[in-house]
Amino acid sequence: MPRLSIEEVEHVAWLARLRLSEAEKQRLTGDLNTILAHFERLQQLDTTGVEGTSHAVPMSNRYRDDEPRPSLPREEFLREAPDARDAFFVVPRIVET
């Protein structure tokens, strides 16, 4: 029984900026519903008293001291940009005002 509609798949694809063909939408809707069904099964497990896991490694408090270190020379990364001018990255305008 499908839990995700094709519209929801389209929405998620849009959030991730993925352009999907009709065939891909169909296939992914099926795949995602299979995955959801698996998780539904997992959720039947009794987890009373078990704390939620946010991280898989048993580790905490890894910090660095507040010491500045050299940055990359600008040319090195601007060279890789799809578009750059003067000292700036150049992107299509997305106006927020």
């Binding site: 003067d86 000292a87 700036f88 150049v90 992107v91 299509p92 305008r93 005002t97």
Partner: peptide, 10 residues
């Protein structure tokens, strides 16, 4: 936002 079609990023 200096030009019409593009934005510059720092």
């Amino acid at each position: 936002h200096i030009e019409a079609a593009t934005s510059f990023v720092d």
